[in-house]
Design a protein around this nucleic acid. Structure first.
Length: 274
DNA sequence: GTCGATGTTATCAA
DNA sequence: TTTGATAACATCGA
């Protein structure tokens, strides 16, 4: 599910809901959730238990939870991971872990079990191979940084935008939306991108992602916020899930769907010329 | 029942 | 360096 706007939505809600609380216990039926955490579940549980939650923020597509004692707890939701908190966040059969906090239980639900958490001393976790080398997100990245990263790639721009070491936070939905807004063909080679393209990509990415955050992200099937509600951005999508429909620029053409790097890609052949 | 597709990404072989 | 396949999993719809 979750790309930058969805993860931002969750991180903000989580920060409001759980900051200041203490982690009393960690219960899970899915130890693999911590398979990429140094020392696995056992050590993660030791690091988490009895810590106080200082703040929750988003970095790229990941949720960073800063705890007392310089502990950092990072979660990647991957396709279907979701944190659930409060009223409607009832237990469901996809709950893989429960975090008993001072004022309630935080549930981690994950239908496809791709989600992963890593926990440890902040300094060490920031050097973890999954974390080190990640690029800035569209709000942080500078024009020269993105230009240099793209220049090194001879892959289609669509694929480059999905590379978290080029620019973080963009996934399949927003890559297509950003390219449509920028009138760039998704197969255009990344190193053929010009200065105007870069400027356009950054500007549209910021505008689109900001608006999606405002509407709580895009829900196709599974994405839910911490209250179990869907996001409202899908109706604003111009290409995602709109194959064979009219281009919203009324150019007369219809949205096409092709595969790029084994990901579905939607675009308007008329507006997005090579 | 079978097949293909789904918002992500790590890993490995060619 | 890049590409494609595969794997991690489960669900849904045709």
């Amino acid at each position: 599910m979750p790309e930058l706007p969805e993860v931002e939505t969750v991180a903000r809600e989580l920060n409001r809901a759980i900051h200041g609380q203490k982690i009393l216990a960690v219960e899970t039926s899915w130890p693999k959730l911590f398979s990429r955490s140094p020392g696995g579940l056992a050590r993660a549980r030791r690091e988490l238990t009895a810590r106080t939650i200082k703040k929750v923020v988003r970095s790229g597509k990941r949720i960073f939870i800063y705890l007392s004692n310089d502990i950092l707890w990072i979660t990647h939701l991957k396709m279907t991971g979701a944190f659930l908190w409060g009223g409607k966040a009832k237990e469901n059969r996809f709950v893989r872990a429960k975090f008993r906090l001072s004022r309630g239980t935080l549930y981690f639900s994950d239908i496809r079990k791709f989600g992963r958490m890593i926990v440890g001393k902040c300094e060490a976790i920031l050097k973890h191979k999954d974390i080190v080398g990640l690029a800035p997100d569209p709000f942080q990245i500078s024009h020269p940084t993105l230009r240099d990263a793209l220049r090194k790639k001879s892959i289609p721009i669509k694929q480059a935008l999905l590379d978290q070491k080029v620019i973080a936070g963009i996934g399949n939905i927003y890559a297509d939306e950003i390219l449509w807004a920028s009138k760039i063909h998704p197969l255009l080679s990344a190193h053929n991108i010009n200065e105007k393209n870069i400027k356009s990509i950054i500007a549209h990415a910021r505008r689109i992602l900001k608006k999606s955050i405002k509407y709580g992200g895009t829900s196709m099937r599974d994405f839910k916020n911490t209250k179990g509600e869907k996001g409202g951005y899908l109706t604003f999508c111009n290409v995602y899930m709109r194959e064979n429909k009219n281009c919203r620029r009324n150019c007369g053409d219809t949205i096409n769907r092709i595969m790029i790097g084994s990901r579905s890609t939607r675009f308007c052949p008329k507006c997005q010329s090579k």
